[in-house]
């Protein structure tokens, strides 16, 4: 019983990580007043670039770096369109999703000739699981032993980084001057401007952070969780992260819980596929897959608290006319 539960939670952690990284990525951007529905595209492009670079160089670290650079580039395109040229942020995000979806397939096929896959990664080209000290020794301790050795130990570096990013993000946003300004620029850019701080530069820094984290999310997918890129491997995770962000009302710690909840649904839907439940019978797997989206709509409808986005979100800032 404990075994099964630990396995389920272990799987939950694994599938939550890309959601969490993407969700925190969106948090920086949206808190600065730049809506970003291009999380999916940046994550996908990051995954492809990361897997390609890791395959060519044989180093997972090079993969991570290239994944981040690629995602940052797309984030800057989004910034260029929505900050510099005051374009529609939603339109720009949609465009980035398509560009990423198409080019990962085209370039993948042209470069590697494996039907859109990148060559399988192994050894140092992947982020290997990290065994925490004493994990093997403590394995036989009842309950706590298995929790430590299975649930906490044995994940790749990016998993620990992702969860570490939660307090870090909280600290950056709520305890630093940069964070205060970042939040201010998402609520009232005119006030920030009046204080003599560049709205443009602040927002650009926010979208760059978004790029870094989505790139890391992509690298996790292709270089740590899986051994290479397969076409359309994000499969809507960017949108689930967006849903989680709304669900968490644009706050870092609730964002982690939301991602864990959606990750748990995903892990459970795989594990209990076709299982019979008392009272309800067999729950269709499609229902569980759709649950994050349904929950978000119910939340947005105002039935579970109220999700209030940053006030200046989606509105390009015009200094003066």
């Amino acid at each position: 019983m404990v075994d099964a539960l630990v396995q389920l939670l272990d799987a939950t952690i694994r599938v939550s990580v890309p959601l969490l990284l993407a969700c925190l990525a969106g948090l920086y951007s949206e808190r600065a007043g730049i809506f970003d529905i291009g999380l999916e595209g940046k994550m996908l492009a990051g995954a492809f670039a990361g897997a390609s670079a890791a395959a060519v160089s044989g180093s997972a670290w090079v993969g991570l770096l290239v994944a981040i650079l690629t995602a940052v580039f797309l984030a800057l395109v989004h910034g260029f369109a929505s900050i510099t040229h005051r374009g529609n942020q939603i339109v720009s995000g949609v465009a980035i999703n398509f560009i990423a979806a198409g080019s990962t397939i085209i370039l993948g096929q042209a470069w590697f000739q494996q039907g859109g896959r990148t060559p399988p990664l192994s050894g140092p080209a992947r982020f290997e699981p990290i065994i925490l000290p004493g994990a093997d020794a403590l394995r036989d301790v009842p309950v706590l032993g298995i929790i430590y050795s299975e649930l906490l130990s044995g994940h790749s570096l990016l998993v620990y980084v992702a969860f570490l990013m939660v307090p870090v993000t909280w600290w950056v946003l709520f305890r630093t001057r940069f964070g205060l300004r970042l939040r201010a620029v998402g609520e009232n850019p005119a006030a920030v401007d009046t204080a003599g701080i560049s709205v443009t530069w602040l927002r650009y820094r926010a979208v760059i952070l978004t790029g870094v984290l989505t790139g890391a999310a992509g690298a996790y997918l292709a270089v740590a969780q899986n051994a290479g890129f397969v076409k359309d491997m994000t499969a809507g995770k960017g949108y689930i992260a967006l849903a989680a962000l709304i669900f968490a009302k644009w706050k870092p710690v609730p964002a982690m819980y939301a991602c864990l909840l959606f990750g748990f649904l995903d892990a459970a839907s795989i594990r209990f596929q076709g299982a019979e439940w008392p009272l309800v019978g067999r729950v269709p797997v499609q229902l569980i897959n759709a649950l994050p989206f349904i929950l978000t709509v119910i939340l947005l409808a105002g039935f579970i608290g109220k999700a209030i986005p940053p006030r200046a979100g989606g509105v390009p800032y015009v200094k003066e006319r």
């Binding site: 929505s82 374009g87 339109v91 720009s92 949609v94 465009a95 980035i96």
Partner: peptide, 9 residues
């Protein structure tokens, strides 16, 4: 979408 939409201007 990018050039005719977001970067329209």
């Amino acid at each position: 979408i990018l050039f005719a939409g977001a970067l329209e201007h």
